[in-house]
């Protein structure tokens, strides 16, 4: 099985989520090979999980003032502030991955763990969907399966600004916000907190971590995928109906 590698690119939040869906559709129809994709978010963005309440999770007005996009993902999981991090997606027919969901998270997260090991950062998989280093979260991941296709996307935190993140997210009780910030600082880390590594080095480690043992070729989105992604960004991911759905 030959994989397609889509090199790192930066897009807005709506197009990023639409590209993942467009690739999944093409893979489902057998028009595209299984795909590994690396990307970033410009402008910075908050993504929320499919089942989260937008108004309870995100201060949409603050995001808008700060020029931060807000998008609902097609996958479950929690709210993520995408600023200085590297995001990956891996998309392929379900048969390429373990049937058991936790086992498939473990296998795919193994690629991120490989990448961190290349950077001499020890990490481990923490079910359900996290990767931790020295007991702190360094990567969050989210998976969905539909139409026989598995999509998993996840972030590898390069740098984290917890104060800025909390200025954009809502907390259940403003009075305990400082406590929550302190608690997140205790529970979340970043590559830069572990050691000095340039982003380019992280990207090349991710590439090696994800392609190890796989036959692959560097490629690009097909015209059809790009067209479908642009359409999905407009008709789904940018719309209030989608983002305010829950």
């Amino acid at each position: 099985m030959r994989w397609r590698l889509l090199p790192y690119s930066e897009n807005n939040a709506f197009l990023n989520m639409a590209i993942d869906e467009a690739i999944s559709d093409s893979v489902q129809m057998g028009e595209s090979p299984p795909t590994i994709r690396f990307y970033g978010w410009r402008p910075a963005a908050v993504s929320i999980g499919y089942f989260q309440s937008l108004e309870r999770e995100v201060d949409v007005a603050r995001c808008s003032e700060a020029g931060v996009d807000v998008v609902r993902r097609r996958t479950g999981g929690g709210a993520v502030f995408h600023d200085s991090e590297i995001t990956y997606s891996i998309i392929g027919k379900e048969g390429l991955f373990p049937k058991d969901i936790i086992a498939s998270y473990r296998q795919i997260c193994g690629s991120v763990i490989n990448a961190l090991a290349i950077l001499n950062i020890n990490s481990e998989f923490k079910p359900i969907n996290d990767i931790i280093t020295n007991g702190k979260k360094i990567s969050g991941n989210a998976q969905t399966r539909r139409g026989g296709v598995l999509l998993q996307h996840g972030t590898l935190i390069y740098e984290v600004d917890v104060e800025r993140m909390f200025s954009l997210l809502r907390v259940p009780d403003e009075k305990i916000k400082d406590k929550m910030i302190a608690s997140v600082k205790e529970r979340v880390t970043s590559i830069r907190q572990q050691k000095y590594v340039r982003r380019e080095e992280v990207l090349s480690a991710m590439l090696e971590g994800f392609t190890r043992g796989k036959e692959y070729g560097t490629g690009e989105l097909s015209e059809k995928e790009l067209g479908r992604a642009q359409e999905l960004a407009q008709i789904r991911y940018k719309t209030k109906e989608w983002n305010n759905a829950r």
């Binding site: 499919y50 089942f51 989260q52 309440s53 999981g77 929690g78 709210a79 359900i128 969907n129 829950r246």
Partner: peptide, 29 residues
């Protein structure tokens, strides 16, 4: 597991409205 949030209204012991939110996973969503 994950965070689970239930918002529900009832009448005569039966659910009249419910919304389930949180950071759990469900395939298909």
């Amino acid at each position: 597991g994950k965070l689970l949030c239930v918002e529900a209204e009832f009448s005569s012991g039966r659910i009249t409205r419910i919304r389930i939110t949180g950071d759990f996973f469900l395939h298909p969503e």
